[in-house]
């Protein structure tokens, strides 16, 4: 397979499963550590009642936070299900009163937990770390890094 295709597969794997891109490129020891660190950080965050972000046009920075959350790959879906008991990526329209009220209520319940901010930081950090892993896999794939 050409180098570009191999790099693309490695990057996709790195996004799907933390550390899988490094495993694909033959870095077994590193991949085990990356998988353990990213998933532990993510689940510690959830255990501390952290939450994943929802994008909202009224809060432009929420798009960046949502992007960082999505960096962790399909694990993000677990975070959304546990945070809001449904898989959503945007703050529901206020006109949809039932859904909007439900999401607001679940958010409020989590915010009231003293460790909420820590947990949310852990979850964001897990996503950002996995984005760095994807970039690292890309650099290794194109030969910029050994």
């Amino acid at each position: 397979m050409q180098n570009g295709g191999r790099t693309a597969i490695a990057c996709a794997l790195a996004w799907l499963i933390p550390g899988a891109g490094h495993l694909y490129l033959g870095k077994k020891a590193k991949s085990i550590i990356f998988f353990a660190v990213v998933t532990l950080t993510f689940f510690f965050g959830l255990a501390m009642d952290g939450r994943v972000y929802l994008a909202s046009p009224e809060q432009p920075l929420s798009y960046l936070a949502t992007f960082a959350n999505l960096g962790v790959g399909p694990l993000d879906l677990i975070g959304r299900q546990l945070s809001y008991e449904r898989i959503i990526f945007r703050v529901p329209d206020e006109m949809d009163r039932a859904l909007y009220g439900e999401v607001l209520d679940r958010t409020r319940r989590r915010i009231l937990v003293p460790t909420h901010e820590y947990g949310t930081t852990f979850i964001l950090t897990a996503g950002l770390m996995n984005i760095l892993l994807i970039l690292d896999v890309f650099d290794i794939g194109v030969g910029r890094k050994a």
Partner: peptide, 17 residues
């Protein structure tokens, strides 16, 4: 302990990376 846990995980990540 949360600070130590966070610092430990992030340090291990960057050291490995």
């Amino acid at each position: 302990l949360t600070l130590i846990l966070f610092a430990g995980l992030v340090s291990l990540f960057f050291a490995t990376l």
